[in-house]
Design a protein around this nucleic acid. Sequence first.
DNA 1: CCGGATCCGTTTCGATACTG
DNA 2: CAGTATCGAAACGGATCCGG
Lengths: 138, 138
Amino acid sequence: MKAKPRVSRRSGCPISIALEIFGDSWSLLIVRDLMFKGLRTFSEFFCSEEKIATNILADRLARLESAGILTKGADPADARRVHYRLTEKGIDLAPAIVEIVLWTTRHEQTDAPPNLLRAMRSHREQFLADIRKRWASG
Amino acid sequence: MKAKPRVSRRSGCPISIALEIFGDSWSLLIVRDLMFKGLRTFSEFFCSEEKIATNILADRLARLESAGILTKGADPADARRVHYRLTEKGIDLAPAIVEIVLWTTRHEQTDAPPNLLRAMRSHREQFLADIRKRWASG
DNA sequence: CCGGATCCGTTTCGATACTG
DNA sequence: CAGTATCGAAACGGATCCGG
């Protein structure tokens, strides 16, 4: 299925928000899983806790790819597998995702790992640098 | 109209994201307009650039209210008008919204006021403190 | 006028079944 | 494994109507 660029009449706003990603639950979850959980393949996303339907998953992966947030390629180890990776643009979502996660844990009760949260909150710059480094290396 | 709590099977995730707000375009735009543009009333939101339909607007305001992100009250100046304000929980969305806006301006071309962006980027803590102060004063 | 509620055609979603 | 195809259900959006 092709990612239909549903035309938005909401552009031209002085203070704008990229709704293509931030307005959509699935896109947000996919990026989070890619960034923090190390998920890479179609079936890993499909089997994750969110129970996304295969057609929606395919659609969102296509949209995110055409938005330049992730790229699709053959797994170097196993050529049958397709591999999704964040682009530079995608990795750059980290600060926003971190703030979103922090707000969520402050205001809804979650069972997020406390040490991870502490790293996000108290050593923000270090934490973001680590994410970048992890992606740079491989 | 009541805010229907469309049940999510996506909870229990170690690193969670509050999809109720970050997963919905309109909610995000309403909070942004409340936070940065000073919009307060139903008709101000309705007449804003986004061209939201009245039923959708009413639904999202109700959802955001029941999520504890904003409150509804009579305008002290004009009792006929209804006034929407961010709660503490809503104001606390500022860091996330700021990162979202910064990412958007970095990666899509927008015509956001450059001095505003500079304030967000270079004097982040001061900028966030100012938002809080503005809301504390009334 | 202001703040919605209701109706209704269109679009999107989501579950499942199916395919290369 | 990595997706399409299909189809009923839900959400959207526009227009109009309504109570205060």
